[in-house]
């Protein structure tokens, strides 16, 4: 991406992410045969949350939530400005680390369990994303997202295994069934986000939008120079993830780690081996 378009996207990221999140909620509701909330619902929530009386457990906890949002934005900026893909993933880890530290810093079992499960979710998806970064490197000779967007043949075709692997771990990243143990509303009531309220919860809420945009922007990379193909792929993955979210129960952490790592890591590795041979 890069250039003016990239920076414009970065600036408007929360807006686009919000719409994306709204679309997801709407789509999910339609799949459950409900009317669902209006498309702009995330923004209504956004403005309502600003309006709430601010309340924190301790000030560090509140700050960490805001830092999580800023970190997520930074990670997204690195991605959209065409930066180094490995650094993108590390920045994302940085953003998440704030949330994890925040989760551990309060005296709430659910929050701490959430932090722990978030760590395990990272264990589940992070290697696959690093794998994808190396896959792009094999094709473009560079780790930069910029270079991927100049690939004339879409990486999708060569990196089929990695694409499937990423689709498998996508629910873990977006906290969707079947790998949404980190959030697990019925067990730990949102996990890491449980102690946040009002303005500070809003930081997490919007960080969630950015996370959506981040994940799907990563998928767009697989289209290479043909960004329309990339967008189409992202749309398909979006549908697929929502569909799977609507058709599965939540698995526990052992199952999640076993499935994601046991299935997608070998798949990605084999794919990479094939690319390497060529």
């Amino acid at each position: 991406m890069g250039g003016v378009v990239g920076w414009l996207l970065i600036l408007l990221a929360p807006l686009i992410g919000g719409v994306l999140y709204g679309m997801e909620r709407k789509l999910k509701a339609r799949m459950q045969r409900r009317a669902g909330p209006p498309l702009m619902q995330p923004f209504y929530d956004f403005f309502k949350l600003i309006d709430k009386r601010p309340m924190v457990v301790h000030s560090l906890h509140g700050y960490l939530g805001i830092l999580h949002f800023l970190g997520m934005w930074l990670a997204l900026a690195v991605l959209l400005s065409g930066g180094d893909l490995l650094m993108v993933i590390f920045m994302h880890l940085l953003a998440n680390s704030f949330l994890i530290v925040a989760a551990f810093s309060v005296r709430s079992v659910y929050s701490q369990l959430g932090g722990m499960r978030q760590l395990l979710a990272i264990l589940a998806y992070e290697p696959i994303f690093l794998l994808a970064g190396v896959g792009f490197y094999f094709l473009s000779g560079s780790f930069e997202a910029k270079a991927v967007f100049e690939l004339s043949s879409a990486p999708l075709w060569a990196m089929w295994g990695i694409v499937i692997a990423i689709i498998i771990v996508m629910p873990a990243k977006l906290k969707k069934s079947p790998f949404d143990m980190a959030e697990a509303h019925q067990e730990i009531i949102g996990g890491a986000e449980i102690e946040y309220s009002g303005l500070f919860y809003e930081a997490l809420y919007t960080a969630r939008w950015l996370e959506y945009l981040f994940a799907y922007a990563f998928i767009v990379l697989f289209g290479g120079a043909n960004w329309l193909l990339g967008l189409a792929l992202a749309a398909v993955v979006f549908l697929l993830v929502t569909l799977v979210d609507n058709a599965t129960t939540r698995l526990n952490w052992q199952q999640t780690v076993a499935i994601t790592l046991g299935l997608s890591l070998p798949l990605g590795a084999i794919n990479l081996l094939l690319i390497g041979i060529q």
Partner: peptide, 11 residues
Amino acid sequence: MRRVDRVREYS
């Protein structure tokens, strides 16, 4: 944070 209420953890 001066103007922010302090609250107990949810349990």
